[in-house]
Every structure is written in C-alpha cells, then in structure tokens.
Computed example of a mutant assay.
Amino acid sequence: MTEYWVSQGNKWCDFCKIYISNNPSSIRNHELGTRHKDNVAKRLAAMRKENTAKEKEHKETAQALEQIEAKAQRSYQKDKAKLEEAREWHELDAEEWDFESSSGYYYHKTNGFYYDPKSGFYYSDAIGKWVTQEEAYASPHFASTTKKASSTSQSNKGNKPHNGPLPGRVVTTSLNPTRNVKAAPSSLSLGKRKRPGEKPKVVSEEEKSALKAREAARKRVQEREKSLLGLYSKPY
C-alpha cells in the first residue's frame, strides 16, 4: 500500500499576528518565547484598561442619575412644602373671602385674588391670567400677602372689596346687535325722485301736440308688428 505525504498546515497566533507550524513542538516553542509572552501581557493589560474605563463610565452615569433624582426630590419637597403652607394659610384666612353676587366670583380682601367656583381657577392682577389652584397657592403673591395681613385681618373685617371692573373682558352687548333705527322710506320706492323746491314744468301747446303725435306713431308701429310676430292669426 502506498503512503502519501499530507501537509499539516500552519497555525495562526492571534497575539503575535503570525503563522507558525501546526505541530506540538513548534506551538510549544512559540508560546514559551519572549515575543509571545510580551504580546499576551499587552493584550491582557489592554483588556483590563478597557474594563476599567467601562466601569468608570457606568459609575459616572449612575452618579449623574442619582444627582438628578436627588435634585428633583428636593425640588418636589420644596414645592410640596410651599403648597402645604399655602393651603394652611388659605384655611386660616377663610374669612377673608367675600362672594360678589354681581360677578359670581369670590374676592380675597388681602391679596386681591379672585376665585371662580364654577371652573376652580384663580385670578390676580400680579399674575395677569387665570391659573389652577396649585399654581395660585404656589405663587409668592398669594402666600406673602396672606402672611403679612394675617395679623391685621381681625381689624379689617369691615373692609369690603373694591367695586371696580371685574378681571377680564366683559361683553355687555350682543356681538351682532339688530339695528332698530326708524328712517324715512326711500324716494325710489315711492316714485320718481324729486328735488327739493323743484317747480312743476310748464308744457306748451306745441309740446303737447308733438307728444300726442309721437304716441300715435308708436301705436301704429305696434299694430303693424303684431302680424309679423304671429300674435294674431287671420281667419281663412
């Protein structure tokens, strides 16, 4: 039986980026060499450095998220405290609210706020628009003026709110009013328009005869055209 020689091929070293003979002795000699060991050490150092950078990035991201959450929590607690404080002051100065039957709004004698019980919105000249209850309570104009006047609210019980115009635009007339104006009828519907102070025209005898002749001529023309238009049929 004839034996054939078969090539063992080459083996690729990923650390050194070279090909070596694919046999145990060549592979062992290459792995024990200084070049291969240095390349392996460099690869491991690069991997450790990359992992360290990733861990640092993850830590920085987590710290940033924690700072954002802490800041949002502090802001929430601050707003909540302001809202609770404003609600407490609102409950304490309930006597300061007066109902205006003409407008249907409640008016606060101390801070000048209006309250609409139908919509639940508040209005103030300092804000310049209608806002929700939370926005009104969180407004510094609502709380500060209430605090300043809390000590003097008992002495000002007899004061009434001003009777000035209500906030916002008030429409007192219809948008499309119907005109109810009596005027003289037009002269066109009554007849020929006459100038004021105009005297009747005097017609002479010659003009009268000329008008009669023109009217007679017009009638003769109409009589001649009747047969042409087929309005009258001749008896046969």
Rank of each mutant, 00 (worst) to 15 (best):
A126F: 12
A143K: 13
V131L: 06
A136K: 00
Y122Q: 04
W130M: 01
I127V: 08
S119F: 12
I127E: 00
K129W: 08
P140K: 14
K109Y: 11
Y115T: 11
G128M: 07
T132H: 03
A136Q: 06
N111Y: 08
E135Q: 11
F121H: 13
S144E: 03
N111S: 14
G120A: 12
F121K: 12
E135M: 08
G120N: 00
K129M: 05
D125R: 09
P117I: 08
S119T: 08
E135I: 07
N111V: 08
Y107D: 13
Q133W: 12
F142D: 03
W130H: 00
H108W: 03
Y122P: 08
S139C: 10
Y114P: 09
Y122S: 07
Y123I: 09
D125L: 05
D125P: 04
P117N: 05
Y106M: 10
K118S: 14
Y114S: 02
K109C: 10
D116C: 14
Y137F: 14
A136D: 02
S139D: 03
K109E: 04
W130V: 04
Y122I: 10
F142L: 01
A126M: 13
E135W: 05
F121D: 07
I127L: 00
Y115S: 02
K118I: 00
V131Q: 01
S119M: 09
D116A: 15
V131H: 02
A126C: 11
N111F: 15
P117Y: 09
G128T: 07
A143P: 07
K118T: 00
K118F: 13
Y107T: 14
A138H: 12
W130E: 00
S124G: 10
F121T: 08
Y114N: 13
Y137W: 11
F121C: 12
P140T: 09
G112A: 03
F113L: 09
K118Y: 10
E135L: 08
F142S: 06
D125V: 08
Y106P: 02
D116S: 15
D116Q: 08
F113R: 01
S139P: 03
F113D: 09
V131K: 03
E134L: 08
D116L: 11
W130A: 04
F142T: 02
